[in-house]
């Protein structure tokens, strides 16, 4: 999949390929041409990706090739055992979780999961969890607390599912309970926005001692499309809405609403899953090193203080 703003790069890359094929097929030396074109492509890439608009980052966060929670989990861990079900209603496949190890240390992983093809997307409900998903997440978090294992959540959702059954089973209550319970977890909690961080559906697993955003992700109270439809009464103002919402990692960091940004490879996380996973893994290890030094009560106090200091008002 090539996004609109990636087209000039893709065109050049195609030209480069043609040139390489030509050089090989006719056995002529085009190496200096190839080299200069490669340099040109790299420069264009850098320029493009350093100057992305907020909406373009939103597009990148939804890129069809972007790695999802389980992609990272399997890259980061040696062993991983997925755990299912909320013990009440069913197993929500939009929310995954399980025990895995990071260099031998056991961690509880939890995250929203999107699907790669039509069938999977349906099964994963496009990464939109139902109440049972949030309750499954909470069950696993409590289990982690019981066994003294740190928690890592990977957030990637266009929102909690707005469906009929979701309302019947208390979507609002499920998210609210998670917010409250996550503040009191005695184990370290690290939250990483890996794709889309839409509103309460994202926040429902995003209360942590450290909150990270990957470079090309978004996190806000509403998606730019819905914001456009409500405030502008039309779906056509999503670019403006994205600008107004200040929803990128850089914006959120600047406003003190997240702790750190994790850089992505040039072109986005999907360009190099191994590198991206390694970088995420390092961020987790570093955070755990810092958080291990604190007593549980201190961690809880700092977690509460951090979120309670968020807000701008005049008195």
């Amino acid at each position: 999949m090539v996004l609109e703003f990636e087209k000039p790069i893709a065109d050049l890359e195609q030209k480069l390929q043609e040139m390489k094929d030509l050089a090989k097929g006719r056995n002529i030396d085009l190496s200096s041409d190839i080299e200069s074109l490669e340099e040109k492509i790299l420069a264009l890439k850098k320029e493009t990706f350093e100057n992305l608009t907020r909406w373009q980052r939103v597009q990148l966060s939804r890129h069809a090739d972007r790695p999802y929670a389980l992609d990272y989990i399997y890259e980061i861990t040696n062993d991983f055992i997925e755990l299912h079900g909320d013990r009440t209603v069913k197993d929500d496949k939009a929310m995954v979780g399980g025990l895995g190890d990071i260099d031998g240390r056991t961690v509880m992983f939890i995250g929203q999961q999107k699907g790669r093809n039509t069938k999977q997307r349906q099964e994963r409900n496009f990464g939109m969890a139902n109440p049972e998903g949030y309750r499954k997440a909470l069950r696993l978090m409590k289990m982690a607390e019981k066994f003294g294992k740190p928690i890592v959540t990977l957030i990637d959702t266009p929102g909690a599912f707005p469906g009929l059954e979701a309302e019947e089973r208390g979507q609002g209550e499920a998210i609210a309970r998670n917010l409250k319970e996550m503040f009191m977890l005695k184990v370290p909690v690290i939250c990483i926005i890996i794709g889309e961080g839409a509103s309460g559906g994202a926040l429902g697993i995003a209360i942590g001692d450290r909150v990270f955003m990957l470079e090309n992700t978004w996190y806000s109270v509403i998606s730019p499309e819905s914001c456009s439809s409500i405030l502008w009464r039309s779906w056509d103002y999503k670019e403006q809405a994205a600008e107004a919402l200040k929803l990128t990692a850089k914006d959120m960091k600047q406003n003190g609403l997240i702790d750190e940004i994790i850089p992505e490879p040039l072109g986005g996380a999907h360009k190099d899953l191994k590198w991206m996973s390694k970088t995420i893994k390092e961020a987790i290890i570093q955070s755990l090193k810092e958080l291990d030094k604190l007593k549980p009560e201190k961690r809880i106090e700092q977690r509460i203080d951090k979120f309670c200091s968020m807000g701008v008002f005049v008195e």
Partner: peptide, 26 residues
Amino acid sequence: GARMMEAGFSLMQMAKTSAKLALLDQ
């Protein structure tokens, strides 16, 4: 619901109030 014009700040009010309620609960 949350106020869109304060975007990320509004979202975090959900967290903030829930944190305080956790303390009240305790």
